[in-house]
Computed example of a mutant assay.
Amino acid sequence: MAPNSKLNAKRKAQREGTQPAKPKKPEKRLANGAKGPGISYIPIELQQLLLNIFRNSFAERMSADITPLLQEVKGHLYKRDFATAFGKKEYLEAYAARWSPSRALGYLDLMWELRDELWVDEEDEEEDQEAKTEQTKPKNRKIVCLGGGAGAEIVTLGGLQKLMSTTYSQDGEDVDGPRGHVEITAIDIADWSVVVENLAKQLTVPAELSKYASAAARAANVPPLNPEDVTVRFKQQDVLSASAEELSSQLADANLVTLLFTLNELYTASLPLTQKFLLLMTSILQPGALLLVVDSPGSYSSVTLNGAEKKYPMQWLLDHTLLKQASGNLNERGKEEIVRWEKIKEDDSRWYRLDERLRYPIELENMRMQVHLYRKL
């Protein structure tokens, strides 16, 4: 049979269904409008803007070869010598420049997906539609980031504030909360004050431009947020040794508390003290307050019972403390108290993948995380 005859016979067989058609090549996954695990729907311009905040904050540190410094930090972290790893300014800046940017983008991708849970209060949901359309005063929100000294959470929340405001203003809607003032408090055992101050400043000032920048570039160079939109504070404190009074002063009026890649480190430091802290936090937080926990998938912590050591998944320990232990007390009538937390979101393994179009002076990595979101009842 001639070559063309073979080709025609093959095509005829495909049309008649007697031979499977050649499979199509998979579509290339892009950040905007694409489908797939870990693909972000955050506008690429905003993602790049947040990376620029880190780039501008640590420009001097990254102007020289930062690799030896990062290797030193990684070595101390591998040995779990956190006091040394976070004991010098240059180590803190190197860590924040290298690991916080991708986490900030990953957190923003997560929080944008959870925006209805994180930014809409229960009383807002109960209002009728007519009341929702009325002009109302924007609400202020207080967010406490435990272990947030490296600054990823700060940049994330600044980005979320900008994204919420931009999105809803484009839709012609007025929404309680997103345009209000956001007060962010980062609490950490190490002194991250310089890092926090640098990042907070970059949220509310225009980026420094080259003297050769065009007039159009200068006109478009506006700060991500207005100074009245956000307040950022840092508190150096070990939450495991903090008194009830100290914690209450920080957490009593918080709308959201985050433990992002922090809880497993607390469990490693002391499981009993961490459980005590979680129960104390439960007693302090107001009803409706949210607790967002993010950590490495498959994180385990060791518990010693009757002299034998056993490992438990971090999420099991967390659920046991918040959903069982926190509600297992009996009241004065001998009846068990109602559950004081409800879990409203859980994801054992969530990906965030960096868009190839993003630009940053040093290499960044994709991230994978487990996610747990609780609401205080």
Rank of each mutant, 00 (worst) to 15 (best):
L280I: 09
G148Q: 11
W99G: 15
G298A: 04
E134D: 11
M62L: 08
Y78C: 03
L260M: 12
R115V: 11
R55A: 05
L322I: 07
K310Y: 11
L51V: 07
E228W: 12
D116M: 12
V155A: 02
V371F: 05
G106S: 15
V120D: 00
L377K: 12
V195I: 13
L7S: 13
P297G: 07
A97E: 08
V303A: 05
A269C: 08
H181R: 05
E93G: 00
Q161G: 10
V175K: 04
P43A: 05
I189P: 06
P138R: 08
E208S: 12
D347E: 13
L157P: 09
L77N: 12
L271Q: 00
R179P: 04
Q48L: 03
R218W: 06
Y107G: 03
Y168M: 14
S349W: 14
L377H: 09
E173L: 03
E45G: 09
M111E: 13
S243Y: 01
G158H: 10
S5A: 07
N198L: 13
L322F: 02
A213N: 13
V230Y: 01
E113F: 00
N366H: 10
Q370V: 07
W341Q: 09
A97W: 15
Q47S: 15
A85H: 14
L278R: 02
R141P: 09
I362G: 02
H372R: 05
M314V: 08
D174I: 14
